[in-house]
Design a binder for these strands. Structure first.
Lengths: 133, 133
DNA sequence: CTCAAAACATACTGATTAAGTGTGAAATAA
DNA sequence: TTATTTCACACTTAATCAGTATGTTTTGAG
C-alpha cells in the first residue's frame, strides 16, 4: 500500500478547504464531519499540514484553517511527500546512505527507478485545483 | 512500500533461473547464495512460485527448480501479483465487495484509479527476458 | 534397501508500522 | 472569564513483514 490514510485524508481535507475558500477559517469539526473522519484524527492530520505550511491557522474561538496558497499552486506530490515521508514503491530506493552493494549490477534496480520516476511525475502533474469540482 | 521483499526477491530468483537455464535443476541453496538471501527464506519464496506454476520442481537428490516457460513469456505483473496479493497503491481500490460509500462523488478516486492503471500497465509491459543480461 | 539431499509444510517470533484514541495544555475571540 | 479552538504527546490495538525453526516427504545414487 503505497499511500496510507494519512496521505489520502490529507488530500481530502485540502480539497475541502479549497472548495470552501471564502468561508473563513474552517474547523477540524467541520472537516471531520464532512469527510466522515474522526475529529481527533482530523486534528492530528491538520496539525501536520499546518506544520508544513500548507495551511494557515488561527487559534481559539472562531479559529480553524484556511489554505495558504491558491489551489493551483499545490502539487499533489508535495502534499503526499509531507504526509507519507516515504513515497518510494520499493525499499531499494529509500536507503541512500548505505546503498545496496548489489546496486551496481542489479537487474531489477533500473525498473524500480523508472517506476519511482513515473509515480513522481504523475503526482507532480496534478494540482489541488485539478481535483476540485 | 508498494512492493515487499517477497516480490523483489521472487523476481531476482526468477531472473537467476532465467540466466542459468540449461544448467538443469537449480537448488534453493544456489539461489540463496548467489542472491545473498537466507536459504530458508528462499525455500519459502520458491515454494510459492512453484505453487503458482511459474517454475517446475523436482524433489530429492539432484532436484531443484527450473523455469516453466520462456523468460519472454513471463510478465512482471503476473509474478508480482502472485507474490504480493495486493498491488494496488491505495486501499480504496482493494475493497470491491463493500465499495466506499463516497466513491460516487469522491474527488480523489479517479486519480487513484489512473495511478493504479498506470502501474499495472508498467509491469505488464515488462517481461523476465527484458530484465536479463 | 538405505542414505543423503532436496522440496515442502507449518507454526512461530520479533520488529515495525498504521490507524487511531486519550489527556491535557496553550491560544484567542466574545 | 469562558468557551472554543489548535496543538502536543503518549498510548493502544491490530496487522503485516521478514525471517527462523522444526520436521515431513520425495527421490536419485550407491
Amino acid at each position: 500500500m503505497l499511500i496510507s490514510t494519512r496521505g489520502r485524508y490529507a488530500l481530502r481535507f485540502m480539497i475541502d478547504l479549497a472548495e470552501n475558500q471564502g468561508d473563513g477559517y474552517i474547523t477540524t469539526r467541520e472537516l471531520a464531519e464532512r469527510q466522515g473522519i474522526s475529529q481527533k484524527y482530523a486534528e492530528r492530520l491538520m496539525a501536520l499540514l499546518s506544520k508544513n505550511n500548507f495551511v494557515k491557522t488561527q487559534h481559539g474561538k472562531g479559529g480553524g484553517y484556511i489554505l495558504a496558497q491558491e489551489p493551483s499552486e499545490y502539487k499533489i506530490s508535495e502534499i503526499l511527500a509531507a504526509m507519507e515521508e516515504d513515497l518510494s514503491p520499493v525499499e531499494c530506493l529509500t536507503c541512500k546512505p548505505n546503498e545496496c552493494p548489489r546496486a551496481e549490477n542489479c537487474r531489477t534496480l533500473p525498473m524500480w527507478q523508472k517506476l519511482d520516476a513515473m509515480i513522481n511525475d504523475f503526482f507532480e502533474g496534478i494540482t489541488l485545483a485539478d481535483l476540485m469540482k
